[in-house]
Protein backbone atom coordinates (compact mmCIF):
# COMPACT_ATOMS: atom_id res chain seq x y z
CA UNK A 1 0.00 0.00 0.00
CA UNK A 2 1.20 3.52 -0.85
CA UNK A 3 0.57 6.40 1.52
CA UNK A 4 1.07 9.94 0.26
CA UNK A 5 1.17 12.33 3.17
CA UNK A 6 0.72 16.09 2.73
CA UNK A 7 0.39 18.69 5.43
CA UNK A 8 -0.75 22.26 5.04
CA UNK A 9 -0.84 24.19 8.33
CA UNK A 10 -3.05 22.13 10.67
CA UNK A 11 -4.56 19.99 7.89
CA UNK A 12 -3.04 16.57 7.30
CA UNK A 13 -4.08 14.64 4.20
CA UNK A 14 -3.30 10.96 3.77
CA UNK A 15 -3.92 9.59 0.27
CA UNK A 16 -3.99 5.78 0.28
CA UNK A 17 -3.45 3.52 -2.71
CA UNK A 18 -3.93 -0.26 -2.76
CA UNK A 19 -5.36 -2.42 0.03
CA UNK A 20 -5.68 -1.41 3.66
CA UNK A 21 -5.72 -4.83 5.33
CA UNK A 22 -4.11 -6.80 8.15
CA UNK A 23 -0.72 -6.69 6.43
CA UNK A 24 -0.71 -2.97 5.59
CA UNK A 25 -2.70 -1.42 8.45
CA UNK A 26 0.41 -1.20 10.64
CA UNK A 27 1.91 1.03 7.93
CA UNK A 28 -1.00 3.48 8.29
CA UNK A 29 -0.92 3.15 12.06
CA UNK A 30 2.74 4.22 12.03
CA UNK A 31 1.84 7.32 10.01
CA UNK A 32 -0.85 8.33 12.50
CA UNK A 33 0.11 7.05 15.95
CA UNK A 34 1.42 9.96 18.01
CA UNK A 35 1.69 12.17 14.92
CA UNK A 36 -1.59 14.06 15.14
CA UNK A 37 -0.45 16.69 17.66
CA UNK A 38 -1.52 20.13 16.43
CA UNK A 39 -3.61 18.67 13.59
CA UNK A 40 -7.16 20.01 13.56
CA UNK A 41 -8.24 18.55 10.23
CA UNK A 42 -7.41 15.01 9.19
CA UNK A 43 -8.38 14.03 5.65
CA UNK A 44 -8.19 10.53 4.19
CA UNK A 45 -8.29 10.40 0.41
CA UNK A 46 -9.50 6.92 -0.55
CA UNK A 47 -9.80 7.58 -4.32
CA UNK A 48 -7.19 4.89 -5.07
CA UNK A 49 -7.99 2.56 -2.17
CA UNK A 50 -9.34 -0.77 -3.39
CA UNK A 51 -10.18 -2.53 -0.12
CA UNK A 52 -10.38 -1.95 3.62
CA UNK A 53 -10.42 -4.76 6.19
CA UNK A 54 -11.45 -4.81 9.86
CA UNK A 55 -7.86 -3.95 10.79
CA UNK A 56 -8.10 -0.84 8.61
CA UNK A 57 -11.45 0.08 10.16
CA UNK A 58 -9.90 -0.14 13.62
CA UNK A 59 -7.14 2.29 12.60
CA UNK A 60 -9.75 4.73 11.29
CA UNK A 61 -11.76 4.45 14.53
CA UNK A 62 -8.66 5.13 16.61
CA UNK A 63 -7.88 8.20 14.47
CA UNK A 64 -11.49 9.35 14.75
CA UNK A 65 -11.28 9.08 18.55
CA UNK A 66 -8.22 11.36 18.59
CA UNK A 67 -9.71 13.86 16.14
CA UNK A 68 -13.03 14.06 18.06
CA UNK A 69 -11.01 15.77 20.79
CA UNK A 70 -8.99 18.14 18.63
CA UNK A 71 -10.77 18.78 15.35
CA UNK A 72 -12.40 16.83 12.55
CA UNK A 73 -11.78 13.81 10.35
CA UNK A 74 -13.14 13.31 6.85
CA UNK A 75 -12.93 10.42 4.40
CA UNK A 76 -13.04 11.61 0.80
CA UNK A 77 -13.53 9.92 -2.56
CA UNK A 78 -14.25 6.43 -1.19
CA UNK A 79 -15.31 4.16 -4.05
CA UNK A 80 -18.41 1.92 -4.01
CA UNK A 81 -16.54 -1.11 -2.59
CA UNK A 82 -15.16 0.84 0.34
CA UNK A 83 -18.50 2.55 0.97
CA UNK A 84 -20.21 -0.81 1.03
CA UNK A 85 -17.86 -1.95 3.77
CA UNK A 86 -18.66 1.18 5.81
CA UNK A 87 -22.38 0.57 5.22
CA UNK A 88 -22.55 -3.10 6.13
CA UNK A 89 -20.54 -2.58 9.33
CA UNK A 90 -22.55 0.51 10.35
CA UNK A 91 -19.51 2.78 10.35
CA UNK A 92 -21.14 5.07 7.76
CA UNK A 93 -23.14 6.29 10.79
CA UNK A 94 -20.14 7.62 12.67
CA UNK A 95 -17.55 8.45 9.99
CA UNK A 96 -17.83 11.59 7.86
CA UNK A 97 -17.82 10.51 4.24
CA UNK A 98 -17.59 13.02 1.41
Amino acid sequence: MQIVKTQQDATLTLALEGRLDTLTSSQLDAEIQGKLDGITSLVFDFAKLAYISSAGLRILLAAQKVMNKQGSMVIKNAGPEIREIFDVTGFSDILTLE
Partner: peptide, 21 residues
Protein backbone atom coordinates in the same frame (compact mmCIF):
# COMPACT_ATOMS: atom_id res chain seq x y z
CA UNK B 1 -30.64 -8.21 6.09
CA UNK B 2 -27.43 -7.78 8.10
CA UNK B 3 -26.46 -11.44 7.64
CA UNK B 4 -27.00 -11.16 3.87
CA UNK B 5 -24.52 -8.27 3.79
CA UNK B 6 -21.93 -9.55 6.26
CA UNK B 7 -21.89 -13.31 5.82
CA UNK B 8 -19.64 -13.35 2.76
CA UNK B 9 -17.11 -10.96 4.30
CA UNK B 10 -14.44 -11.42 6.95
CA UNK B 11 -15.33 -8.14 8.67
CA UNK B 12 -15.10 -8.78 12.40
CA UNK B 13 -16.03 -5.36 13.75
CA UNK B 14 -19.45 -3.69 13.60
CA UNK B 15 -20.86 -0.45 14.94
CA UNK B 16 -23.58 -0.60 17.61
CA UNK B 17 -25.85 1.43 15.32
CA UNK B 18 -26.16 -1.52 12.94
CA UNK B 19 -29.18 -3.11 14.65
CA UNK B 20 -31.22 0.07 14.78
CA UNK B 21 -30.36 1.04 11.18
Amino acid sequence: LAAFQLANTDLDIINSSLAVV
